[in-house]
Nucleic acid binder design. Structure first.
Lengths: 341, 341
DNA sequence: CCGGCAAATGAAACCGATTACATTCCGGAG
DNA sequence: CTCCGGAATGTAATCGGTTTCATTTGCCGG
């Protein structure tokens, strides 16, 4: 006989409930699962017995019998040093947890940074230790996505893929960078800004590409190619790029930043150059990072609905578990008006 | 017979491995679990069979047989609106995931904000659906902690409890606020600051109490009672409190802030009052929030080792699962020297 | 009053592992 | 040469549920 956990009192099982209710285990199971094969009468009897015995379903036994785990794996492959102080991860996670609340499914975090951890995670997925996978910040490198598809499990990608060949096999949730960028640009147009500059993140980043497109669509000639520069995501990049820009194009009256940290660098450069914000130059960031609200002056920025992203990812996962076809949802970003634009 | 998941190919079980290896299921199980009852020879045979069949252990079957779930529940009760944009949650979570990596245990997030969710979570814990619980930001209200103790499960509290009656029953991990505060204070002393002010968070907060004590121990008369004020955690509180303080005590040459956001407010107030930082007034924050590095000037602050906290919590949980007695670990904070002090 | 059919229930197989207990197969002591 | 003991393995019970299949029960029409 298996060794029981130390001092664990013998648990109440359906057998106990069955005895108490004077029916068989099968009937108890059916009553619990709302089968239409049991009388309302019997169901009530069983429910009373459950209440009297304090029975709580053992998830493992059920999982074993049904082949379902009642869990959703949250696969995180993000390199640990990146985005370290970014609340993104936590917010999406919270959204997922919220989205699963009440479904009976629980989120299981599977962190797989190294190649070996990834292989391990995949093998456990293959073995159906989770009923679905929500993959955060999907990562094209290696053959992870292909392997994920190979498991046959429902998979929800949280975050955008450049040109996904996985339409129809994975569900996807992401925020509409193009639309978000348009919102920022429209704000500047409404404000009468004429000579706009863009200080963007790395040129090969998919988010950068989309944001740039959104800016261009709205601003047209107001955003000169020569006033569009790429730099790193952090504030030092934003600072130096802006400083250089102010040298070559001293007449700019607005800056669209590729991230809030870039925007902070831009603000510093503007202050150093003696420009007033927003009087002389407007600035709009991206992400609604914690630093945006606390910047001086407080930064107008574009917010990604991260919690909603997580919630929706969870719901899509549940849908697919229930048999629905994969689908893609694009969430709208919001302009958070503060002081800088 | 239970309905199998759609299109799920029949899984490889130990029975298949046993057939392939020409031994019994029991022997396979023993080989897998490194029992010393199997010959090295047999073990090798089994391992080859495993490799050939591509067998992966079914965690649920094992969990059912052993009574262990191979999971650690991460209980989050934090009210959702608080600390919303704080990376704390995510970092600790990541630490936990890292700390569990390689142990075979997986973290399961159990979010229980409402009373009913809390009850549900507890019932599932009681049923041994997890092997241990790591409780984030423990919360004295209600009888949650008592109920947690009642489950008999190993519990690790992550974060400090004011005056815990649970010594010896829960393990606890938290950062040493007193020591952190001393670090900040010592920095000011070394810098020759003589008239120090403290703009702290709510007076009844345990962290505030500890930090205040740490400041007082080091600074003595340098930190006048009259220059110690309490306010809310955010920057507006920091701003107004600092502004008021500058009115009544214009001669202060350093400010110890109860949080980074308070510190940011203080910086703004100092700038408004025409004081230079750090030349006229030094400022030290607390938490190493993302905004600290991005402040202007970059904020010197005290960092909590959040990831390490999570890692340690995970390790303590594993220890207790293995039968170790609960213990308390207090992690050292670090001074992050930047520009403001 | 009886046969037949459907609804409700019970009995038992099963999910995939672990482990107590039984069995086999050694070698070595007497 | 026999017997004993321990090591290695096999057999089967078990964990806590679900589900198939068989059985019982109740109701109806003929």
């Amino acid at each position: 006989m298996p060794r029981r956990r130390r001092d664990a009192p013998r648990a109440v099982t359906i057998a106990d409930v069955a005895r108490e209710a004077g029916v068989s285990r099968a009937t108890v199971s059916r009553a619990i699962n709302d089968s239409d094969l049991v009388t309302a009468e019997t169901k009530r009897t069983v429910e009373e017995a459950i209440a009297r015995t304090g029975f709580v379903m053992n998830a493992r036994g059920r999982a074993l019998a049904t082949g379902r785990a009642e869990t959703v794996g949250v696969l995180v492959t993000e390199p640990l040093d990146e985005l370290f102080d970014d609340p993104t991860y936590g917010r999406v996670l919270r959204g997922i947890a919220e989205g699963l609340t009440g479904s009976g499914f629980l989120p299981v975090i599977v962190q797989a940074s190294s190649e070996s951890e990834r292989a391990l995670a995949l093998r456990s997925f293959e073995r159906r230790s989770v009923d679905a996978v929500v993959h955060l910040t999907p990562y094209r490198g290696g053959d992870l996505l292909e392997a994920l598809a190979g498991t046959g499990l429902p998979v929800v990608l949280c975050g955008q893929l450049v040109d996904s060949p996985y339409e129809g096999v994975f569900s996807t949730v992401y925020s509409d960078d193009v639309r978000g960028a348009r919102l920022a640009a429209e704000r500047l147009v409404a404000d009468g800004r004429e000579r706009v500059a863009a200080v963007l993140g790395p040129a090969d980043n998919p988010a950068t590409v989309d944001r740039r497109r959104g800016y261009a669509e709205v601003l047209g000639a107001r955003l000169d190619e020569a006033r569009t520069v790429h730099t790193g995501w952090d504030s030092t990049g934003g600072f130096s790029a802006t400083a250089a820009l102010l040298e070559t194009h001293p007449d700019i009256d607005a800056i669209l930043a590729g991230s809030d940290r870039i925007a902070l660098g831009a603000l510093a450069a503007l202050r150093a150059a003696g420009r007033r914000v927003p009087d002389d130059v407007a600035v709009i960031g991206f992400d609604d990072h914690a630093i945006a609200a606390n910047a001086s002056p407080p930064l107008t920025t574009i917010a990604q609905p991260l919690v909603e992203e997580g919630q929706l990812a969870a719901r899509l996962a549940l849908e697919m578990i229930a048999g629905a076809a994969p689908r893609t949802e694009i969430l709208p970003m919001r302009l958070i008006p503060r002081t800088t634009a």
